[in-house]
Design a protein around this nucleic acid. Structure first.
Lengths: 345, 345
DNA sequence: TTGTACGCGTTATCAT
DNA sequence: ATGATAACGCGTACAA
């Protein structure tokens, strides 16, 4: 059996209350008593039971971190940054990888709620569905504790959204490519989440606003989890053979874009002379591939920082905006050549 | 205030004991009562308090997951796989990213222990120091709960090690390169952890066993966190200019190896004709770079699976081996050309 | 400065 | 099948 505060109090010849005081900062305890108790605690390696502690208290200083797949490059970085920020502010993180099934999610949300977390951060926009019914579990959770959305948006009391304007970013990326004289662009995406659809819309609107004929629309949805780059390359090849050649690829994720690079190389196309490629997320992959990948930076660090900032305010009962939107920006590398002289169509 | 089991019992007109029974499987409760209680629970969205629950119980079904940096490609994957395996077995994960400071670690270990986790998994070999004093905190923790080591080894009661034989893997990788006719190899590493030193030793022994003269020894320690590939490239360039040319690079991590690829390309060297390159971890990066990177697969999936398997046995009080060692293997891709006809030196 | 006693929400043991 | 009640370990009024 583990050692308890009662054992310590006995050994030190004081009451449990005194031990408790020592444990919580040692206010109103004589230095002598404090030292005596501290020594005993040290000697017996006593560790207070956080659960008993949490019973009476209102906060356990723990935040639930829910994501679909923490091994995804973008998510992994987000989780890391969030955990670090939380840690720096005295909070612990309860990580749950829910996968993409909505029912599984609901269960996990309950599990996390039962642990009396102070808040839950949902990483990624997969968590928001398109119907009100799908989002019921979020509304329910929000009745109990603040729900923080990273890169998603949902309008409801006690739900706070921090996101990057993926629509605008993608619109800008596509416009840049079009303006550089490339109207025939292949768009690759693998997620129909809130953010995934925003990006798609941004791409499509850039085409229409630049008067690109529908016949040049070339949009490919890659259904599988985007881990295996060879599969992506094969997929592009399979879906585009026999169809008109395109001179640009824009992908909703860097991994897909790298698949595009590999495809181009397989086809013997020069990058960026014969084909331009843009990725999304500005991940480490952009520096790994050759040529280095132009990509949209969605300022993850700023997002996570702001999210925790908001969260701390909310937990402190202070007034905070419900929705904070950042702007992404295109980081030009070697798979495109837009600047310094963007050519008109 | 959150709704409690007491509120439910009042509303249902039964005792808390009955509600508790319904909550825990509904054994020895009449169907009618069971339904009545269940309905009330549903209606009011009651969620049991895991902390109060944990007070009486011995297990909270939570495992502490400690790593240095969960955004590291290898670690992220390990964390994901572990979390999934745990989840599948009814356990939750408490994630802590401790960084590399030993003191910070000690604190976090305490924090996690106070949450009454059933076990702690230490991801990566950074957690094991070279002196007995450094490892004291691990021995102390092991007195309370089983400590699981992923890719590290430490001989102590209640500490279980699951690892890949990095020494042998690296020895094999280096030998392959030497046997293919490349004796002048640059070795890149960025971690002096248990596993990091094993790899280094494997490399060095491969050299001596193959009678490579000391003058060809070329070992570079990259001190920074290996995130930025350009920095790595610059570092290699800086450290090797003016020194004799080498025809092979072996890196202790894929990221470093990609830095090597970029370096070679910058120098105008053909891969693998002019220079061969081998990475380590067989991560997604191997497929992103051009040419695709030959890398050592340290069978992370098998490791995590085995670790959880062992853990479940330990928690069930069954007999289990204290140390399980897997073998890695070299996955040949396009940055080397060893097979089918390995040339002799 | 220190100690006593109660409450936190749940489970388990005993009755009934 | 169900209810009453004692733990579980800690924080904290309140008292001394």
């Amino acid at each position: 059996m583990a050692i308890t505060i009662y054992d310590i109090s006995q050994l030190a010849g004081v009451s449990t209350a005194t031990v408790s005081r020592v444990l919580n900062g040692g206010e109103n305890v004589s230095p002598a008593t404090c030292k005596k108790v501290t020594d005993i605690i040290e000697k017996y390696g006593y560790i207070p039971n956080a659960y008993a502690r949490g019973m009476g208290l209102h906060s356990l200083k723990t935040i639930g971190l829910l994501c679909a797949d923490s091994s995804d490059l973008y998510t992994a970085r987000a989780v890391y940054l969030l955990e670090q920020e939380l840690q720096a502010n005295g909070y612990e993180s309860l990580l749950c990888c829910t996968g993409f099934n909505q029912d599984v999610r609901k269960n996990y949300l309950h599990l996390v709620l039962s642990k009396k977390v102070d808040s839950i951060i949902l990483v990624g926009s997969h968590f928001i569905g398109t119907t009100e019914l799908e989002n019921e579990y979020i509304r329910e959770a929000a009745d109990l504790i603040p729900i923080m959305l990273l890169n998603a948006s949902y309008n409801h009391p006690n739900v706070y959204s921090t996101l990057c304007d993926d629509y605008a970013s993608m619109y800008e990326a596509a416009s840049s490519m079009i303006c550089s004289g490339i109207p025939d662009i292949l768009y690759l995406y693998n997620s129909k989440s809130y953010s995934g659809l925003k990006k798609l819309k941004g791409f499509q609107n850039a085409l229409t606003d630049n008067n690109i004929p529908d016949s040049l629309q070339n949009i490919l949805y890659y259904d599988k989890s985007s881990c295996d780059i060879e599969n992506i390359t094969d997929f592009i090849e399979e879906m585009t053979t026999g169809r008109p050649r395109f001179h640009g690829i824009i992908a909703a994720d860097d991994v897909l874009a790298v698949g595009g690079i590999k495809y181009a190389q397989k086809e013997g196309l020069r990058i960026p002379e014969d084909i331009s490629i843009i990725g999304y997320n500005n991940s480490i992959l952009t520096a790994c591939c050759t040529p280095a990948l132009t990509s949209v930076d969605n300022c993850l660090e700023a997002l996570t920082h702001q999210l925790i900032h908001t969260l701390l305010h909310v937990l402190a009962g202070e007034q905070t905006p419900q929705k904070v939107v950042f702007s992404g920006r295109l980081i030009e590398r070697d798979t495109t050549r837009f600047s310094p002289s963007p050519k008109r169509i």
